[in-house]
Amino acid sequence: MSWKHSFSTSIGKKLQMSFTGLFLILFLLVHCYVNAQIFWNDGGAKFNEAAHFMGNNFLIRTTEIGLFAFLILHIVQGLALWAKNRSRRSVRYQVTAGNKTSPWYRRSMGLLGTLILLFLIIHLSKFWIPNRYAQTFGSGELNLYTRMREEFSITWVVLFYLGGCIALAWHLVHGFYSSLQTLGLTTHKYKKMINGIGIGFSIIVPLVFALMPLAFYLNWII
């Protein structure tokens, strides 16, 4: 069985979602750690140092290309799966079970993912794109700390970011467990542990992210 074939069956496509999803989970961890440096409340010194390292290290910049490739694969494959799965039941039920047989977020990964994608477009256009542009064509790296302070003094931006974090949290609750189920790791022995770590991760990481715009908006940090 060729590699291409292995990854193009229905389980193969799930594996693509799983591998890319797990990589994105790892990225979130790094992103969260780096950005949490703002909480030192040192005017952004530690944060800017970390941001400078992330923006200039050759290995990290190379991984960044892989990150975008995986992100696009995750989005394209996810949307394709959503559309294909929907088409498998042409005549729909008159009455549906709703939340009686499964929690809503497990059935709404496509919707939650799309919300995260919308968030991501705005998010990248506010930080990553202008910074890389300035770095490549302009007068060098931007002071991202100052930029965060400016952006997060605007009410709608803060609310939009909080919304993004909520969508991310629900997406992760199912995504974390689901990626490991696809890899066949959710055996009787590990299921509880995986669920526990997954829920913990889905609460802590989006919460730390949500605290960032809030901290600037409410002047917890200067």
Binding site: T9, I11, K13, K14, L81, T101, R106, Y177, T182
Partner: peptide, 21 residues
């Protein structure tokens, strides 16, 4: 799995409604 795909079933997204029912 190949036959399952050929028959036109959807793919699993680990929702769990099957187990419940």
């Amino acid at each position: 799995i190949e036959q399952m795909d050929k028959e036109g079933f959807g793919s699993c997204t680990n929702i769990g409604a099957c187990e419940a029912e």
